[in-house]
Design a protein around this nucleic acid. Structure first.
Length: 272
DNA sequence: ACTGGATCCTGACTGC
DNA sequence: TGCAGTCAGGATCCAG
């Protein structure tokens, strides 16, 4: 499941192949995603031209001029360009065919937590986007913002990092990785972070996400790029999924805890 | 206003 | 080998 780097890598893989192409057909095999896919969407989109593919947080925004198609990959979704002859398998729920070139874009989502939505008003006012926090890789997100945004918060810093109203794009894996990078324990109350800790954490979030994008969004086990290639595994997790294994810095065993039903990992020596 | 928990769904893996 | 139980990358909704 895609966190911001995987979504951005997907966007960068698709945009040059699809931008400027005309959608000639859309096939919905299973409309039961997180929200049902609008049965009228194929008719809305037919014969429209894809102007651009944008991203807000983990949402991909396909701009067709007359409206925007939002795609969220949920926990298990992927978008790939495949050969038009390739038969659809069990969890391939949606196909889009673009011309010229007969390019076939295919959405696969076994757990069906993803979404495909259509919006014709200003996209930034969409109910799912309106309350989103800043993009972590843009200048609006920095230590000063993080410090201000966490004052008075009793919640753990890890849950704040994953709260899309405070900050978009950071999921369970990169939250643990960024906290390791900043030397902060995941259970630390967000409101108790010093300004210096916020500076370190904002920098670690940016660094962690940027490095993962640079590596092709490849830190996830079964992540595949826009053409279906496996991730490169160029980013080794420092702590995520490494409970009991020695810290790569100090060799202390990495701890696994559960916060809000999600696993968190940290080094009890490097993180305080 | 915040916060934590339950929830949607399927597949992969572990241990008996 | 089979089967039950556990865990998984998200984010909304709801109760306290």
């Amino acid at each position: 499941m895609p966190e911001l780097p995987e979504v951005e890598t997907t966007r960068r893989g698709l945009a040059p192949r699809l931008t400027g192409h005309r959608l000639v057909a859309m096939t919905v095999r299973d409309h039961r995603l997180r929200w049902p896919i609008d049965a009228a969407l194929p008719a809305h989109l037919r014969e429209t031209t894809l102007k651009a593919i944008g991203r807000r947080g983990k949402y991909l925004l396909f701009d067709f001029g007359c409206g925007t198609m939002l795609v969220h990959l949920g926990m298990s979704g992927s978008l790939r360009l495949v050969d038009t002859q390739e038969p659809a398998s069990r969890h391939d729920h949606v196909d889009w065919v673009f011309s010229p070139g007969r390019l076939l874009l295919r959405l696969r989502d076994p757990r069906r937590f993803g979404a495909v939505l259509w919006h014709t008003e200003a996209i930034e006012e969409h109910p799912l986007l309106r309350h989103l926090g800043p993009e972590p890789l843009e200048p609006g997100f920095d230590g000063r913002y993080l410090f201000q945004a966490t004052r008075g918060a009793k919640a753990s810093i890890k849950s704040v990092l994953m709260d899309s109203r405070k900050l978009v794009g950071v999921g369970n894996i990169y939250a643990s990785e960024a906290l390791f990078g900043a030397g902060i324990r995941p259970r630390m109350a967000a409101g108790r972070l010093t300004r210096d800790a916020c500076d370190r954490l904002a920098a670690a979030v940016k660094h962690t996400l940027a490095a993962a994008i640079k590596a092709g969004g490849s830190s996830l086990r079964d992540y595949r790029g826009a053409s279906g290639e496996l991730g490169h595994f160029q980013i080794e997790a420092k702590v995520y999924g490494r409970g009991g294994a020695p810290c790569r810095v100090c060799h202390t065993p990495i701890r696994r805890i559960v916060q809000g039903q999600r696993a968190s990992y940290y080094c009890p020596h490097c993180q305080t």
